[in-house]
Design a binder for these strands. Structure first.
Length: 591
RNA sequence: GCGGGCGUAGCUCAAUGGUAGAGCCCCAGCCUUCCAAGCUGGUUACGAGGGUUCGAUUCCCUUCGCCCGCUCCA
């Protein structure tokens, strides 16, 4: 058997369409970029992935509860989270060198690049018009070749006249650079590209969040956004969940649902879609200082802890590592082999300013190694932001912490406070901030920290589909070659679990017995009935959609109630009774 | 958003300034005692809009989508 695992995305996309996994959204109207629909099999697969995640993350645990919040929320949430600022920068493109850049960063970029620094040096020497002209005729040809004064002698002359007539107006790099681009141009002045001197387009709003209007009046005061991530609702509803779920820190809140991002470049099939679905968990933990007060010490990764069962003494670092392991275990359970993905620990300089650590789980897609899921240790950033912006307390009261603090005498408290203040100051925080935090801690209160495993449903599905796809070259007994396409989905996520065939459809006794068995099985498992064509063809059809087992009812079934159970991957057959078959399925499918 | 390439049936691909064809898939029927067998019949396409032309799937323009690169990426 010759196997081929390296398949292009085109071949996979073609199968997905042919068999009803994935369609392009709005296809009859020409499609719409960055939006994809799941067909009959795709939606079963998606449902299975989500249910498996939910069961593993929420139902099978005692320390995680769920939330299902709205997609449209108060716009202040996105102000507090930082999305409104970071997702909506006006962008300009250079007409000459085609670079895209944030309009508000143009002058900073110039100041930091060789062109700006070269000009600054000229100004520092006391910029005379003649020197600037010489610069345009010399150095600038390499640094800013598309600058109007470099390209065009008339513009350069006009610039010279203005520099000579009014030197006081041209004392900054920005003023001179702008003049060199605009000396002869009609109004309005253009902004020159910091990279090449070419003309930038007008800044265009580049909103990565989808905007909408709440209520019938289309007015800026009614603007709201489709959420760019599901996580923020969890923070916004944190106190409600805490108050009603009878949970205490450490515990988690999970949510699955649609999110929307106006991606610059939707690319790579469903990988980067504008409408996508997330599975996010916010797992709230005690700050390390609280752990220390309660347990007397904080377990870190240096202690090489056993990560299988959570412990009270774990600090954020261990909790983070724990969730990385949990998430990897789930991914493997869904059918992605351990060696098909990599765990990438972001380097300190790559981390967002509030993040303490972030691990990307990356899968080796046909188009490259790309992120499936991220597990971030986000400190108390999110809850603190919402506390600040909403004015509502995001603190919890931690009884064991209060009891532990009460046992300390004043001297011990002072010593502890001094230690924490020193640590905080070493991390660049203010002494006042640290003191306030410790004071709260002694009363049993703090804003919880959070570890956030955030996975993309669609990315997971794409990885599962890519991983499952295989073309096998088979040679039969007579030496005839044949290609078998198999989707090796794990039974847990396979869209159809079991297919039922009557060996012959024109023999009523077999047919009726098969229907009876099918009706029995379908009530418990996603089952599929197929009576069309030869038996081999029916097996191959199921291979292509990844059905793990096919059962065939034949004459022997009528005698001893056994049926042929054919395994997708090995193509081996065995005879089982209905009870034995159910046992086999239950064992493989239990999450 | 820019540059380049590409859009013909569900899929993979032909041909053509003058009625668009194949293989596979799919559907119905016959046949069939375990791996895409056979026979009969059937559905389905020039991405969209405009222009040139007696006539455009073919030439031109616009648009939409896909692919590659650039750019961007809490």
């Amino acid at each position: 058997m010759v196997m081929s695992k390296t398949s292009s995305l085109d071949v996979i996309a073609s199968l997905c369409k042919r068999r009803g996994f994935i369609f392009h959204s709005s296809e009859i109207y020409g499609g719409i970029n960055g939006f994809w629909d799941y067909g009959p099999l795709g939606c079963e697969l998606k449902r299975n992935v989500k249910e498996d995640w939910w069961k593993t993350t929420v139902r099978n645990r005692e320390d995680v509860v769920g939330l299902d919040a709205t997609i449209i929320m108060h716009p202040a949430i996105w102000k507090a989270s930082g999305h409104l600022d970071t997702f909506s920068d006006p962008m300009s493109t250079c007409r000459a060198c085609k670079r895209l850049m944030r309009a508000d960063q143009v002058w900073d970029m110039l100041a930091e690049n060789p062109t700006g620094q070269s000009l600054q040096a000229l100004l520092d020497e006391g910029a005379e018009a003649g020197k600037i002209v010489a610069w345009c005729k010399g150095k600038a040809k390499g640094l800013a070749p598309n600058l109007a004064s470099v390209l065009d002698a008339d513009t350069l002359n006009a610039a010279f006249e203005k520099l000579t007539a009014d030197p006081a107006s041209y004392t900054t790099v920005q003023a001179v650079y702008t003049l060199l681009a605009n000396a002869k141009s009609p109004q309005p002045a253009v902004v020159p590209c910091p990279h090449c001197g070419g003309e930038l387009t007008e800044p265009r709003p580049f909103n990565l969040m989808f905007k909408t209007v709440v209520g019938p009046i289309d007015d800026p005061s009614n603007v709201a956004y489709l959420r760019p991530e599901t996580a923020q609702a969890i923070f916004a509803q944190f106190q409600n969940v805490l108050a009603t779920s009878r949970m205490t820190v450490p515990f988690g809140i999970a949510q699955m649902g649609k999110s929307f991002r106006n991606e610059v470049t939707p690319r790579n099939y469903t990988f980067r879609s504008r409408e996508f679905e997330q599975m996010e968990l916010e797992f709230f933990i005690r700050p390390d200082e609280a752990v220390e007060l309660i347990c007397g010490h904080v377990t870190t990764m240096a202690d090489k802890p056993d990560l299988s069962v959570p412990q009270d003494s774990w600090g954020w670092e261990v909790w983070h590592a724990y969730w990385v392991e949990q998430r990897k275990a789930w991914i493997v359970a869904c059918g992605l082999p351990e060696d098909s993905f990599v765990e990438y620990w972001q380097k300190p300089e790559e981390l967002a300013h509030y993040a303490r650590a972030c691990v990307d789980i990356e899968y080796n897609f046909p188009f490259g190694i790309q992120e499936l899921e991220g597990i971030a240790a986000r400190s108390d950033y999110d809850l603190s932001q919402h506390q600040k912006h909403s004015g509502k307390s995001m603190e919890v009261f931690d009884e064991p912490l209060k009891l532990a603090a009460d046992k300390l005498d004043d001297a011990a408290k002072t010593a502890f406070a001094d230690k924490v203040i020193a640590e905080w100051c070493a991390r660049g925080k203010s002494e006042d901030e640290a003191r306030a935090f410790v004071f709260k801690l002694f009363t049993g209160k703090y804003v919880p920290h959070v570890v956030e495993p955030s996975a993309g449903v669609d990315r997971m599905m794409l990885a599962l589909i890519c991983n499952a796809y295989e073309e096998q070259k088979l040679t039969d007994d007579k030496g005839k070659e044949d290609t078998r396409i198999v989707m090796h989905f794990s039974p847990r996520i396979a869209p159809v679990k079991v297919a039922v065939f009557p060996l012959l459809k024109n023999k009523p006794e077999i047919y009726n017995k098969a229907r009876e068995i099918f009706e029995h099985l379908r009530r418990r498992y996603a089952a599929f009935w197929d009576e069309g064509g030869a038996i081999g063809r029916r097996y191959r059809r199921q291979d292509e959609i990844g059905t793990p087992w096919c059962v065939t009812i034949d004459f022997q079934t009528l005698e001893d109630d056994t049926m042929t159970v054919r395994d997708r991957d090995s193509m081996q057959q065995e005879r089982l009774t209905l009870a034995q078959l159910k046992e086999k399925l239950d064992e493989a499918l239990l999450v």
